[in-house]
């Protein structure tokens, strides 16, 4: 007598295969679900907003009259914000990464800093907003100017910039550094001339991606108290400012009062998404162009 009944197994097998196929289809549909939503979102935004984008919109001032409203102020504000965020976060991000990867001895201090960075990455952005409001805007009495917002955003994206730079530095093979030391180069000469240039594409890719995070962030700036008023265009990092996401926020809130504001919000979202697309494409191009050759 056989323990395994072939017919029975065959029957069960058919059933199991059908279940497998059904599951596969469901899993596939789940995967597609997010993308369908993405498609709807983008379609909605574009169909609502694209008609509102024209030269006047891009170069105009804010206005309560939807027909006249433009977003040049918000575009300039976003640019000025980057003028602060990009150098500050690069300086501290790369500096910290160099310290952790190349100078800090393995031990308690290093793992403490590392753990601390990991925890900071999980702190909600609004908490950074509170820190920025308390320290930069009030304690240091800067007011809600570009510098205060920029420093807040820099702290917010610092953890991801550090981690990305660390990965880029770690990816530089040891033998390049050894070759440099072998020629009598000092540690800093080796870092400056060999390791950092080799890590640069990775560092830049990471930095651009963190910048795009900062460009899209709203919550910390809301907390800092970016005014909804019609302010003049910012001309330096010491001016008051608004940014694209803030403009989307206010227009969305007020869309229940003035219907056209929803379209203006859509149009602004299109611009914001295009900026982010541009940045991300740049990052991908850098990553592909400088793919490791060593």
């Amino acid at each position: 007598m056989k323990y395994v009944d072939a017919v029975q197994v065959q029957k069960r097998m058919n059933f199991r295969l059908i279940v497998n196929t059904i599951a596969k289809i469901i899993f596939f549909l789940s995967t597609v679900f997010g993308l369908v939503v993405l498609g709807i979102l983008i379609y909605r935004v574009f169909s609502d907003g694209i008609g509102w984008i024209n030269m006047d919109f891009l170069t105009g001032k804010l206005s309560t009259d939807p027909e006249k409203a433009g977003i040049l102020g918000a575009i300039l504000g976003t640019l000025w914000l980057m003028v602060v965020v990009a150098p500050v976060t690069m300086f501290f991000g790369v500096g910290t990464a160099i310290y952790l990867e190349l100078y800090a001895k393995k031990g308690k201090l290093r793992s403490f800093i590392q753990t601390n960075i990991a925890n900071l990455a999980g702190v909600p952005s609004i908490v950074y907003g509170i820190l920025g409001m308390t320290v930069f805007v009030r304690a240091l009495d800067m007011g809600n100017i570009v510098l205060a917002g920029g420093l807040t955003m820099s702290l917010l994206i610092l953890p991801i910039t550090i981690v990305a730079s660390q990965e880029a530095i770690r990816a530089v093979p040891n033998h390049l550094g050894e070759a440099s030391y072998g020629l009598g180069a000092t540690k800093w000469q080796t870092i400056k001339n060999i390791i950092l240039p080799a890590a640069l594409p990775g560092i830049l890719t990471g930095a651009i991606l963190s910048l795009s995070r900062a460009i899209g962030e709203t919550a910390p700036l809301v907390v800092i108290g970016i005014p909804a008023l019609l302010i003049p265009f910012p001309g330096s990092i010491f001016d008051k400012f608004t940014v694209l996401p803030m403009q989307i926020y206010y227009w969305t809130l007020d869309s229940s009062l003035v219907e056209e504001y929803a379209y203006l919000a859509s149009a602004t979202i299109i611009i914001l998404l295009l900026v982010l697309l541009l940045l991300n494409t740049t990052a991908i191009i850098i990553r592909n162009k400088f793919q490791k050759r060593y």
Partner: peptide, 28 residues
């Protein structure tokens, strides 16, 4: 190390030009 040079198991040129590879030592 300036007086005692080293050549490694795996060729390890710097990701720079041939010229820059040679000039690196004197330059630093």
């Amino acid at each position: 190390r300036t007086q005692v040079g080293m050549v490694f198991q795996k060729p390890n040129p710097f990701p720079k030009s041939i010229y820059e590879n040679i000039a690196y030592g004197p330059k630093i």
